[in-house]
Every structure is written in structure tokens, then in C-alpha cells.
């Protein structure tokens, strides 16, 4: 009833694709968190809630009968707008208290989760599949959507490099990362840079949530499961997108390999445990990459 067991080559190809696409998905999920942590030195623990917001944007777009791809810009704008409010009213007073910022954003995550529940109900929501089916990659049939996720990750990575290297905003943000006091002394409006950065980070998180919808259940708690993994990856990556890509590839790869050859249950905690060990051995993680 099914093709005969796959050949060894095909199996290795699948493993390779699994590793790369898993890393890509982790990268997409974690970019928003990294953007905020890199510039603001704040952990946005409401990150999971923003993923959820993005996914519900996809639901709303579906309900309105729009093209499912329209969910991507809608999610980015919604996420960024909510992010702007959050920065202004919750995060701004807490820059000097980073641990309290973790807690306040965690609380915000609870609030957003409950508001979504009150608005949409607890049920699993239906979203239209963006790219169904499989494609043939060197003789191995593989999920088209996961391949698309790889492309999306690369696009986000390149887009962000351009933003940081090639625009005025990026230059200012880098100045803030390196030396905020100096940046302020040079006349940069650091307050505004923080605000815009937080908005972009939240926008990216919501975008990631939309991109997740074909791969995961859409319900009010969906984001929490992704939170700890992203948090760990960002701690390891520090401030650099290249380091994040490396962390996703290494830790995500380890997750796939442990899941494939040892046990998926151990695979489920691989990222968290490895990240903790990496940080113990080298407190700066991969940030020197």
C-alpha cells in the first residue's frame, strides 16, 4: 500500500532536510525575540502571545474571505501596532529592571491569551493551508511548506541584514547596541529607536505566528510551547542574527538527530538542555560569531 522502505540515501537526504527546515522554523520563530533582546537587552516573555496573535490574524483573514497570503502583512502590522503600545506602557518603565520586564511581559502574555479566549473561544481554529503537498528533492518526497519555510527564513535573515547594515535605522540600532550613552550623546533619539525596534520585533513574532499556522494547531495557548525554545536560542545567540542562525542549525540539528536516533521525548528537551550547557561552558554563547 505504500512505497517500499526508503533507501539509505533517501533516508539521509530526509534527515538533512529535516535538520535544515527545523532550523529554519526555529529561526523564524526566534527572530522577533532576538531583535528585541539584541537592542533593548529585554526578554519579551509575551513572545508566545505574539505568535498566537499572528496565527489568529490568519484566522481572521480566513473569516473575512481574503487571500490567505494577505495574513502575512496583516499579522506584521497588527503585531507591530500592539508592540508599540506595549513598549510605551509596559516595557518602557522597566528598562532598568530587566528581570521585572520578564515578569511583566509574562503577565502580559497571560492577559493576551485570556483576551483571545474571550474573543475567539477556546476551540482549535481552522486556517486555510498555504502550500499543501510534497515536492521531489533529489529523489526524496518532502513537504513543500517546510521547504517554503526554509526560503522564508533565508528571506527574513537577508531582509534583516539589509535593515541593519543598509538603513539609517539599522545604523542607529547598532549604535544603541554598542553604546547607548554614546549614541544618545551623538544626538540619536534612542527612545524612538527602542520603540521602533520593539515594534519590529513584535511584528516579526506575529509574522512567525502566521507562518506557523500550516504546521501547528491554532488555539489560545499555542505560543507557549514555542516560547522556551526561542528563549533558549536567543540566550545562546546573544545579539547577532548570524549567531542565531548557527544556534538554530546546531541545536535544532541536535534535536532532530536525538529525536531520530535516540528518542523524540529526549529530542523535545534537547534545545533547552543543550542551550543551558552551552551557556555554562561559554557564558557568551555563540555571540562572538
Amino acid at each position: 500500500m505504500m512505497a517500499p522502505p526508503h533507501s539509505k540515501e533517501s533516508r539521509q537526504m530526509t534527515l538533512l532536510l529535516d535538520i535544515i527546515t527545523t532550523a529554519a522554523i526555529l529561526f523564524i520563530i526566534a527572530t522577533g525575540l532576538l531583535t528585541i533582546f539584541g537592542v533593548l537587552k529585554i526578554i519579551n516573555f509575551a513572545h508566545g502571545a505574539w505568535l498566537t496573535v499572528g496565527a489568529y490574524c490568519a484566522v481572521a483573514v480566513g473569516d473575512l474571505g481574503w487571500n490567505p497570503w494577505a495574513a502575512l502583512p496583516v499579522a506584521f502590522v497588527t503585531g507591530a501596532a500592539l508592540g508599540g503600545l506595549t513598549e510605551r506602557f509596559i516595557v518602557r518603565p522597566l528598562y532598568a529592571r530587566p528581570l521585572d520586564a520578564i515578569l511583566a511581559t509574562w503577565g502580559l502574555g497571560i492577559i493576551i491569551g485570556q483576551l483571545i479566549t474571550l474573543g475567539f473561544g477556546r476551540d482549535v481554529q481552522f486556517t486555510k493551508a498555504l502550500l499543501p503537498g510534497t515536492a521531489d528533492v533529489f529523489g526524496t518526497s518532502y513537504s513543500v511548506y517546510r521547504l517554503f519555510a526554509l526560503a522564508a527564513a533565508i528571506a527574513i535573515g537577508l531582509g534583516f541584514s539589509w535593515l541593519m547594515e543598509g538603513t539609517r535605522l539599522g545604523l542607529s540600532a547598532r549604535a544603541v547596541i554598542m553604546n547607548e550613552a554614546l549614541a544618545r550623546a551623538l544626538g540619536l533619539d534612542t527612545r524612538r529607536i527602542r520603540w521602533v525596534t520593539f515594534m519590529i520585533g513584535c511584528g516579526l513574532a506575529a509574522l512567525a505566528g502566521t507562518l506557523l499556522t500550516p504546521l501547528t494547531s491554532v488555539d489560545p495557548n499555542m505560543g507557549v510551547a514555542w516560547l522556551v525554545g526561542s528563549f533558549m536560542l536567543v540566550m545562546v545567540a546573544g545579539q547577532s542574527f548570524a549567531a542565531l542562525a548557527l544556534a538554530c542549525l546546531l541545536l535544532g540539528g541536535a534535536q532532530v538527530i536525538v529525536s531520530t536516533y535516540v528518542s523524540p521525548i529526549l529530542g523535545g528537551i534537547t534545545v533547552a538542555v543543550l542551550a543551558a550547557v552551552v551557556l555554562r561552558i561559554s557564558p557568551k554563547g555563540f555571540s562572538r560569531v
Partner: peptide, 15 residues
């Protein structure tokens, strides 16, 4: 609603 209230109080308290 209960969790919403607790969450809101918590955030307000932290800030």
C-alpha cells in the same frame, strides 16, 4: 476572567 484579572494585577504591580 479570573486569570485576566490576576494577570492584569500582576503586570500593574510589577510596573
Amino acid at each position: 476572567l479570573w486569570q485576566l484579572v490576576i494577570g492584569t494585577l500582576f503586570v500593574a504591580m510589577i510596573i
